[in-house]
Amino acid sequence: MHISGRGVAMSVFASLIFAIIPAYALYLAPLDGVQVFAQRVLWSLPAIFILLIVAGRMAALKEAMLRLMREPILILAIFTTAALLGVQWLIFVWAPINEQMLDLTLGYFLMPLSLVLVGRIFYSEHLRKLQRIAVLFAAVGIAHELWRVGSFSWVTLLCAVGYPPYFMLRRWMAFDSFSGLFLEMLLLAPVAIYLIINYAPLGSFLTAPHLWYLLPGLGVLSALAFAAMLGASHALPLGLMGILSYIEPVLLFFMSVFWAGEIVESGEWLTYIPIWFAVLLVVFDSVRVLLKQSRHVN
């Protein structure tokens, strides 16, 4: 599979938006992490539907629904991907509110390595020399953190292992990015409604009127980021997508320190510096290959 410039751009765009969302969640008090998750699901649903219309993908949504009726195995698959996505959406907004954003960040440092491993084992994807060097540097950083701390928190492990099976199922299902995401949000909507009705603090929107515009904004950001990420997962080899995904935890790290105010211990720098170098190698390699492909086309 060739490197798609559009796929790389979508992956970088998704990383930028995802890095904003945990910091954004800090402004949604008095809602706790579970309520922010529930509201995120409900506000994402109309945002994704509007994107479907704007992008002219309603025919793809109709085809996806027809496929669900023709192929019952896809119903089980879409319920599974919805559950996997729901867990990731919950932890993504729960962690910063509960001062575990650095654990979240470490999980997203581990997740691209999981994607690279999945791409190599299940899809026989091969990495170029600079990509292999980048993975090596990233692995050094992760190994140092494991040696320094001695274990990973449950937040870190959930982030690290949750997305690879999701992407594998979504690739197998071959649904349009917007259509599949819309169907997953439809399945998660009853859960979100139940959580809001039974556990939401009374009068939240009266005591915090800023929620009226911040929550729709969260839905738009979530829809745009996931649509871009899923588009990238179809346009790029999983290994390359995994390496490009290091952009997100680097940005999350800066958000954790400079926005959320979490403190980095001196020993942690030996974790982050090799990973940042890996990101630079990947960016350089991707730009180099894209320029080479462009010269061949012209």
Rank of each mutant, 00 (worst) to 15 (best):
A227P: 02
L218T: 14
L202Y: 03
Y194K: 01
Y246W: 14
A189Q: 08
H210W: 14
I196F: 01
E248L: 06
A227E: 09
I193F: 10
G242D: 03
A223K: 09
H234I: 11
A227Y: 15
F226H: 14
I193M: 12
L230C: 01
V220I: 13
S245E: 12
L211Y: 06
H234S: 07
P237D: 11
H234V: 10
V220D: 04
P249Y: 05
L238H: 02
W212G: 07
A232T: 03
A223N: 09
I197W: 09
F205W: 13
L206P: 00
I243F: 10
L238T: 15
A208H: 05
I196C: 07
G239S: 11
L215S: 06
L195I: 11
G217P: 06
G242L: 03
Y213H: 11
W212A: 13
A235Y: 06
L211K: 02
L240F: 02
P190R: 05
H210E: 15
I197A: 15
A228C: 08
I197M: 10
L211A: 04
L236S: 02
L202T: 09
G231C: 01
Y246H: 12
L236Y: 01
P216E: 07
T207C: 04
L240T: 13
N198A: 13
L214T: 11
G217T: 12
P209F: 07
L206T: 14
P190Y: 03
P209L: 08
A228D: 07
G203E: 03
P190S: 08
V191C: 10
Y246M: 09
I243N: 15
S222G: 14
V220Y: 04
A223I: 09
I197H: 01
A189I: 01
H234T: 10
E248R: 07
V191S: 05
A235H: 09
P237N: 07
L240S: 05
I247P: 00
G231V: 01
Y194G: 13
Y194I: 13
A232D: 07
V191R: 01
N198S: 11
F205V: 03
L238F: 05
A192Y: 01
I193K: 00
L230G: 00
I243G: 10
L214F: 11
F205G: 04
W212L: 12
P216A: 09
G231A: 08
L230Y: 15
H210N: 14
A227L: 14
L195E: 13
A227V: 08
L202G: 08
V191L: 12
L188I: 02
A200L: 08
P249E: 05
T207R: 10
L238K: 00
V191K: 05
L214D: 04
A192P: 01
G242I: 02
L224D: 06
G203D: 04
L224R: 01
N198D: 13
S233W: 12
A223S: 10
S204N: 02
L218M: 14
Y194N: 03
G219N: 14
F226R: 06
P216T: 11
L214A: 09
A189K: 07
A192R: 04
I243E: 15
H210R: 15
Y199W: 13
A232M: 11
H234M: 14
I197Y: 08
V220P: 04
F205I: 04
A235V: 00
G231S: 12
P201E: 10
I197F: 09
P190I: 06
